[in-house]
Amino acid sequence: MAVITFLSDFGYTDHYVAAVKAKILSNNPEATIVDISHAIDPFNIAQAEYVLGSVYNDFPEGSVHLAAISTHGSKNGKYHAAKYKGHYFLMADNGLLSLLTDGQPDIVIELQNDTPLMAFPAKDLLAPVAAYLAKGGDIEILGERTYQFRQLLNRQLRLNDHYITGHVIHVDRYGNLITNITRDSIETIAHGRTYTIHFGRETISRIYPTYTQVDDGDCCCAYNSQDQLCIGINQGHAAELLGLGFDSQVDVRFYPGS
């Protein structure tokens, strides 16, 4: 029996999360449902992509990931089941699938749907499909294969021999700024050279193992568990104190010599 993960922008004050889980369990009483988060900002596809993309691969292959983000965000009323890297994904045709897979899922099925304008598609359509796939159901019988799904593009790094330009792609609950600059991109271009990291009015010349390696209130850079460059303030909220947020520019500049 495969695990079902559940990500949504439903919040925690209404009955929506419980209603979806109830539908899954009605179809598959033995289902194991793992909540990833229900605090995604309403309709925030980029935030959903970061959160789900950071964790789905930690689950066993065959896991089913129900992503109820902006489930009415598709005017065409389309919903998809997809397979990518051994995992199943269920979501509206709102661009999230293209971001998670860089536009290259292995299989995309347009879910057969006799009621395109549903009041609660996460419950009425996606939940039963999640229960079915978790029991080992065949994705191919859920509808027709398609190559047409909404395309969105992830922010791309700009790189040359002397600098990297990236952007903040997520601000976490602690105010840490996660960028799309990776450890690999820095080490590949550095070739042992010194470098400085620039954001807002700040310049940092060292990447620490953790934020706690600097004094309380000091700003520093560190890599997270996905090897992404992050900006934080020890015991402080970096986004608020630095005046930075989603899409803020971050530069790494490299210097001759070592």
Rank of each mutant, 00 (worst) to 15 (best):
I197H: 13
T188M: 07
T182I: 07
T165C: 05
L152A: 06
Y147P: 02
G166K: 06
D184A: 14
V168H: 13
L157W: 02
H167E: 09
N154K: 13
D172W: 15
D184P: 02
D184H: 11
L159D: 00
R145V: 01
I197M: 13
E202W: 09
H162D: 13
T194V: 10
I186S: 02
T165S: 10
N180W: 00
Y163G: 10
T179G: 15
L152W: 06
D172R: 15
H191P: 00
R155Q: 07
L153F: 08
Y195N: 06
H191G: 10
D184V: 03
T182A: 05
T188A: 09
F149E: 01
L159P: 00
R183I: 10
Q148R: 08
F199K: 00
T146N: 05
I164W: 04
G166M: 09
S185T: 11
T203G: 05
L153V: 12
R183P: 06
N160F: 02
V171A: 09
R193W: 02
H191T: 09
R183W: 07
I164V: 10
T196E: 15
Q151R: 14
Q151M: 06
L159T: 08
N180S: 08
L153R: 07
I197T: 09
N180D: 08
T194F: 07
T196A: 15
E202A: 12
F149L: 02
R155G: 02
T146H: 05
G200F: 03
H167T: 14
G143H: 03
H198R: 14
N180V: 01
R173Q: 15
H170T: 05
R158W: 00
L159V: 11
H170R: 15
N180F: 01
A190Q: 10
T194E: 10
I197Y: 13
I197R: 05
R145K: 11
Y195I: 09
G200S: 09
Y174T: 07
I204H: 09
G175H: 10
R150P: 14
G175W: 06
I204Q: 14
E202S: 12
I164L: 12
L152C: 07
